[in-house]
Nucleic acid binder design. Structure first.
Lengths: 350, 350
DNA sequence: TTGAAAGCGATACCAT
DNA sequence: ATGGTATCGCTTTCAA
């Protein structure tokens, strides 16, 4: 592997000095360097396939064009992977590179991940979580421009901008979809109590029911958990009763799988006898379920992109960083998206 | 954010020169610097919370301690995420950081991802794929130490070391597990034809059947696809026939979900009437299925760790890089791991 | 219009 | 034993 061409090589070939090369290649040639020299320099650079050494640039400019991303569990999750994908797209488009450190659900690794990244001189930081949650913001994040994606500063006076999904309207629109199909007895399997998304979605559900003037039966709304077996057991309880709901909204697509399993075991046909809604639009799951799952898609890519745009904005214009006086608008809320497939249908005739 | 301490700051505080600081902090103090000065230097470094600037180090040493990882689709996959997790663990333990670029299934982005990474002066490269596959190795990977994880050089004379799972024994052991439970009529839903893992697992299946002296019915082994609906339709065909298999091996856990759905719809109880095996041990799926899935776990973390160890070895000792004469052992095969849960059981009595 | 020189932070060689 | 100096590759200021 022969050494890459440096600015000096280009200068020699063009018969000028390094400074001239630098000026021209950075668009500040006009008025400083003779038109003719400019051409020679550009030609030489092209010949040698020159591009400046980013390491040297970083050292010189004190900016690395690297964004550090800390994630609580990307590497095992199809979810926030998409947030990172959206963020990375935006970063790449601006000539930045992302370095992600995953703490694998071990919050005690947060600080050290941030320090490692800071040590590497990242220009900005982003913290991404799989599920919506309050975050005990690592100290280091306050030292450089930073944003939060799918989580929010848990301190009394939030200091960082965050981007989160609009869970209330997500819950509301899910229920509204079912309402429009004529359902009146709708159950809501709401995930696990630890997630702040849960109460928000329930609020949305209640709003929709209230608007339709339908009372919410308390035994129809409960925390089930997040996994297939949770959905299964929740549904078995709901569906074995003499009076069973005609539709079930699940807090994620895996719960919906459990519900579908339960329905099949009980001889119920979906969506003829029972409508099922998922949440997340999990890739490789929702679209290929049998029947294909109607679900509420989380706007993960958009969230990642929005968070990164916000961050890059702060980096290039430090004035945009949130002020410590707690003023200003620190929240971006992205709407969820209803995806209608085949697991929901008209309410069965009585 | 006040500036970080530099070697010069430490030198001043200790009343010595930068060189002395460098020597001492790199363990080459003895014989060069007075014991007393050494102590003062170490003390000063601790006081100032000094650590060398990695950017400056990179420029100076021409090594960045950054490993570039190109992945074909991590960000949407719970699978190779684990490979990367395993790789990252090892890298971190050696003071390296990983930068991953995901091409999101667009092979035309391979070269540019590699170039971006190379441009950033990574010390080594790793290419990771979700499923086993031959790889058209990006040119750039030949310019620095590189390894392949879950894929292999498709060229006639492989130039890069690769780490892959032992699919043949995976297929064999899956079938053997069922054989031990007394099953004789075993179906094999084998994924999609495009994956090289498919024929390998089938070979394993046939080996196991042959060893048990059971003829393989050709209508019992076929490519179904990789998704839930594929498993469902495959199983509906298999299970609606008058003579149905007592066990089905699936090429992944999502297929197994489809099979379970079909079984439930047909009123078949698992594992009483039908045993189902998955493959992958996909997180959040296999362990929480109803019933919990017996499955063949892919050794993803181990593969990532093995690949990274290999790579770091090559970086610190270039002599270990594969020679272009095609000699040497370029393959590391990692065994799969049977995980027995509840979806498999004794063959039903006739 | 051009080139020489300083500096970003660290290491290694070479005098002293 | 110690400190001065060149070097890594680049940008920027300043003199010519």
């Amino acid at each position: 592997m022969q050494r890459k061409a440096t600015a000096l090589d280009v200068a020699k070939r063009a018969g000028v000095s390094r400074s001239a090369v630098s000026l021209v290649l950075n668009g500040r040639g006009d008025g400083n360097v003779a038109k003719e020299s400019q051409d020679r320099i550009r030609q030489a650079a092209a010949d040698l396939n020159y591009s400046p050494n980013p390491i040297a640039l970083s050292l010189r400019n004190q900016r690395t064009r690297v964004i550090g991303i800390v994630s609580d569990e990307v590497v095992v999750s199809p979810f926030d992977g998409n947030i990172i994908g959206g963020a990375d797209d935006v970063a790449r488009a601006h000539g930045f590179v992302t370095v992600v450190m995953d703490t694998e659900r071990d919050a005690s690794r947060d600080e050290s991940a941030v320090e490692t990244l800071l040590d590497r001189q990242v220009d900005g930081l982003m913290y991404v979580t799989v599920g919506l949650k309050p975050l005990d913001v690592p100290q280091g994040m306050l030292r450089v421009p930073s944003v939060l994606a799918n989580c929010y500063d848990s301190s009394p006076a939030p200091r960082l901008h965050h981007v989160i999904p609009d869970e209330v309207s997500g819950g509301r629109e899910a229920t509204e979809h079912l309402l429009q199909l004529g359902h009146r007895d709708i159950a809501f399997l709401a995930g696990a109590a630890t997630s702040p998304a849960v109460p928000l979605r329930i609020v949305g559900h209640r709003e929709a029911m209230a608007k339709a003037a339908i009372p919410v039966r308390e035994d129809r709304v409960f925390m089930a958990g997040w996994d297939i077996n949770d959905g299964f057991h929740g549904a078995m309880g709901l569906l074995s009763a003499t009076e069973r709901p005609t539709a079930i909204v699940c807090a994620n697509d895996r719960l919906a799988i459990g519900v579908a399993l339960a329905a099949a075991r009980l001889g119920l046909s979906v969506p003829r006898d029972l409508s099922i809604m998922g949440y997340d639009d999990e890739s490789r799951i929702a679209a290929t379920m049998v029947p294909a799952l109607t679900t509420m898609a989380l706007p993960l890519r958009e969230m990642g992109a929005a968070a990164m745009s916000m961050l890059l904005g702060q980096i290039e214009d430090p004035a945009r960083r949130p002020t410590s006086d707690g003023s200003g608008h620190l929240e971006t809320m992205v709407p969820c998206r209803l995806v209608v497939r085949e697991s929901t249908g008209p309410v069965p005739a009585l």
